[in-house]
Structures are given as C-alpha cells and as structure tokens.
C-alpha cells in the first residue's frame, strides 16, 4: 500500500489522526495532514482504509498495488 495526501484539499479535520495515529498527524500551525508513514505495515491497512473513507475532504489516496 502506498498513501498520498493532498495538502491543498485537506480541511484539517483530524479524523485520520484519530483513526490511524501511527500513520497520520497534523501540522501544529494549521492542522493540515502530515503523512508519517507513506507505506505502512499490513497491520495498519484496515485503519488507513477507514481514514481514507471517513476523510471529509477526500484528501487521502491509496494505491493498493504499490
């Protein structure tokens, strides 16, 4: 799995941080997404999927074949 985030679309809701804190964080100054791990271990995949679906700005993209 390879994750990309779209900082321009991100609205700083922080849902991804709540769901997958090992993978996502927020910039302190404006709450925009910080990708901690672009290729997380299998154990995090389910949470990352959930974070991508719940993201209100659809700012998280997943490439499953990578």
């Amino acid at each position: 799995m390879k994750i990309t985030v779209d900082e321009a679309k991100c609205c700083g809701a922080g849902q991804c941080v709540l769901i997958a804190p090992e993978v996502f964080d927020q910039r302190e100054e404006d709450g925009i997404v910080l990708l901690l791990d672009a290729e997380p271990a299998d154990a995090h995949h389910a949470a990352v999927h959930e974070a991508a679906t719940v993201c209100p700005a659809a700012a998280i993209r997943l490439n499953e074949t990578a």
Binding site: C11, G12, G14, V17, Q26, E28, D30, G31
Partner: peptide, 12 residues
C-alpha cells in the same frame, strides 16, 4: 483565512 485559525482545532 481558515488556515490562520485551523491550528487551534487540531486533535491534540
């Protein structure tokens, strides 16, 4: 404008 204040509403 929004990003000037959004840092106050992070999860942390």
């Amino acid at each position: 404008l929004r990003r000037m204040v959004s840092g106050a509403f992070t999860i942390k």
